[in-house]
Each structure stands twice: as structure tokens, then as C-alpha cells.
């Protein structure tokens, strides 16, 4: 470079040309259209919240703050509130997470660390399939099959841990003719069924993050004499912590919004006693599904208000989860 500079006449030395990127005509159209769809999706998303907010304003105007403190949802006496529905939703979601978390993490670990390499991709698509099994199917299964089996577990939990207030049921578990129906249609059963549905989502996020754990560090751990579990504990799990937290939160978001399976299993009850094993529970989405058909305009507005609360709730949880997951992935999977 310096040699040619000496030789060339002054003033005509090579300088970097200024490259100006000017999109051609069709590019300009393309970018406008693409940006347009992006904005459209943005508007759509914001629109969901906006529409629900506008439409539910009637209910907020009619019930005011009582809407958040009233436990009853009783249209006959015109007392509608979500003080029981919202905690009910959270309880079912937490049960689902408590059941699904250990299973999800072991499934994810099995697929990413223990399974033979040949069947790995098949197992991943089995997990996808599990996520795509319709919720009505889980609901039917939960109602006709699981419920008959799991009431024994519920009764045993009551017998063994009945001293805990949330595991007690208002009946005598040791009676010879124990009241089976008291244990059916409970938040616990709904939670277990919802767990089946959130498990694949949680597990596939975890698996994805686990399988991205750096190969060099895995091999280093093994070469230093660690066992497979030692390697998992010292490399895979710390590396995948973001995925574990994020995947669980995504599962939580899904559990909060699950509708049909819950609506098929529970029998609605608007009490705030948190007895998870006892007949009767309610969640926001199942409330909407169950009461939608028989609502007047004002009640519909109240259902929309409940839906709005659910929407905001899940949006916050999901966004947080997405941030956690994407942070844990940063630099490894993006920008090829």
C-alpha cells in the first residue's frame, strides 16, 4: 500500500470509496410492506389489550374497586368480582408448575444428556407432539381416567398431611364409606392435568438450553474425572439456569391461561379457602368459558375485565420469561 502511494501522482491516491446503499424501487416497496406487517402485528397485539380495556370499562364503572375485592361471581344479586377467581387461577397454575417442574427438568436432562443420540430427534418431536395434543383430549382423559385414580392419592394426602390447612378437606378421610365425591373436581386434579400440558413447553425450552451448554467445558469436566452427573451439575445446569427459570415461567404463563381442560374438570366454587384437594375451584379463563353463553351485556363486560386482567398477567409473565430465556441464549444461537 505504502509503495504504490509513493508512485502515484499526488491527489489521485486510492481512498476508500464512499459506498452509498440506495435501495432500488422494489426493495423500497418490499421494506415498506415488511415493516407494514410488523406494525400490523404490533397493532394487533396492542389492539387486543386496548379492545378488552375499552369494552370492560363498563364493568369497572359499575363495580369500581369492588371488582377486585368481591369474591362472589353472582349475577343474580349483581355482585361480580375476581377476588376469588384470580387467586384460584394462581393456585391451579402453581400446582401445575409444582407437578410439572421436576418431570420437565428430568425429561429435558434425559433428552439432552442421557438418551442415545440416534433417538434424540425423535424424542424432541415426541415432546412437540405432546404440546400439540389438544386440550380437550387432556380434559377428557383427566375427567374420565385420571380423576378416578387420583382421588385415592388426594385422600392419602389428606390423611397424611391433613393438618396443613390447604391439604384438608371438610370430610373424614378414614371413614369406611369415605366421601369420594368430596375429592373430585378439585383444583388439585385440574392442576395435574394442566401440568401435563405445560410440561412439554417447559421441557423443550430447558432441553434447548441444556443442549447448548459448551462442548469444551463438558469435555473438560469429564476429562478431569467427573461423572456424568458431576458434569451435568457443574456445567449443564449452571449454563442452563436461564432456560430453567425462563422455561418454568413460560410454563406458568401457559398454565395461567389454560381454559378448556380446567373448565371440563372443576366444578365452579367461589370461595377463598385454598383447599386444593376439595371439590370446587375456579380460574379466570374457565370462568369465561363457563359463563360466557349466559351473560347479559354488563356481565359480559365483567368477563372481559377478568380477561383483561388475565391478559396483562400472562403478558407480564411471558415477557419476563422471554427476556430471561433470550439472555441465557445470547451469543450462542443468534446472528449466524
Amino acid at each position: 500500500m505504502s509503495g504504490t502511494e509513493e508512485a502515484s501522482p499526488v491527489g489521485t491516491a486510492d481512498r476508500p470509496r464512499r459506498v452509498r446503499v440506495r435501495p432500488t424501487g422494489d426493495d423500497r416497496v418490499f421494506r415498506a410492506v415488511a415493516r407494514g406487517t410488523g406494525v400490523l402485528v404490533l397493532v394487533l397485539t396492542a389492539g387486543i389489550g386496548a379492545f378488552l380495556a375499552i369494552r370492560s370499562s363498563d364493568a369497572f364503572a359499575a363495580y369500581g374497586w369492588d371488582f377486585f375485592t368481591e369474591t362472589q361471581w353472582n349475577p343474580e344479586v349483581n355482585r361480580l368480582g375476581i377476588a376469588a377467581v384470580l387467586p384460584g387461577t394462581i393456585v391451579v397454575a402453581l400446582i401445575a408448575i409444582a407437578v410439572s417442574f421436576p418431570l420437565a427438568i428430568t425429561t429435558a436432562l434425559y433428552i439432552s444428556e442421557y438418551a442415545p443420540p440416534r433417538v434424540k430427534s425423535a424424542l424432541v418431536s415426541v415432546l412437540d407432539l405432546m404440546a400439540a395434543v389438544p386440550s380437550v383430549v387432556y380434559g377428557l382423559w383427566g375427567f374420565y381416567f385420571l380423576q378416578d385414580e387420583i382421588i385415592y392419592l388426594a385422600r392419602w394426602l389428606h390423611q397424611a398431611f391433613g393438618f396443613l390447612p390447604f391439604l384438608s378437606v371438610g370430610t373424614d378421610p378414614d371413614a369406611a364409606n369415605w366421601a369420594e365425591s368430596r375429592y373430585t373436581s378439585s383444583a388439585f386434579i385440574a392442576g395435574v392435568v394442566v401440568a401435563m400440558m405445560v410440561l412439554p413447553i417447559t421441557a423443550s425450552i430447558m432441553r434447548e438450553v441444556f443442549s447448548q451448554a459448551p462442548v469444551g467445558e463438558r469435555e473438560a469436566a469429564l476429562a478431569l474425572g467427573s461423572t456424568r452427573w458431576g458434569m451435568i451439575r457443574s456445567v449443564v445446569l449452571p449454563f442452563g439456569r436461564g432456560g430453567i427459570v425462563g422455561g418454568t415461567m413460560l410454563g406458568l404463563g401457559r398454565a395461567l391461561g389454560e381454559t378448556i381442560a380446567v373448565a371440563m374438570i372443576i366444578s365452579p366454587a367461589f370461595d377463598l379457602d385454598f383447599r386444593i384437594l376439595e371439590n370446587g375451584a375456579i380460574t379466570v379463563s374457565s370462568l369465561i368459558a363457563l359463563r360466557f353463553g349466559e351473560s347479559s351485556a354488563l356481565q359480559l363486560s365483567a368477563l372481559l375485565a377478568a380477561g383483561l386482567v388475565l391478559y396483562v398477567f400472562t403478558l407480564v409473565v411471558n415477557t419476563l420469561a422471554a427476556i430471561v430465556v433470550s439472555r441465557s441464549r445470547s451469543g450462542s444461537a443468534t446472528d449466524l
Binding site: G38, L52, G257, Y311
Partner: peptide, 25 residues
């Protein structure tokens, strides 16, 4: 970037909310 974050969050949108939205809108 904003759109992508929103889309990620929307994948977990409770499906009943989608129904409510179409019902209202």
C-alpha cells in the same frame, strides 16, 4: 426488536383471550 419481544410474549397468549378479542372486535 420490539415486535420480536412482543411476538415471543404473544405465543403464550391465553387462547381464550384471542377468542374474546375477536368477539369484541
Amino acid at each position: 426488536k420490539v415486535v420480536r419481544t412482543l411476538i415471543e410474549a404473544m405465543t403464550g397468549l391465553p387462547s381464550i383471550v384471542a377468542g374474546l378479542f375477536i368477539y369484541v372486535a
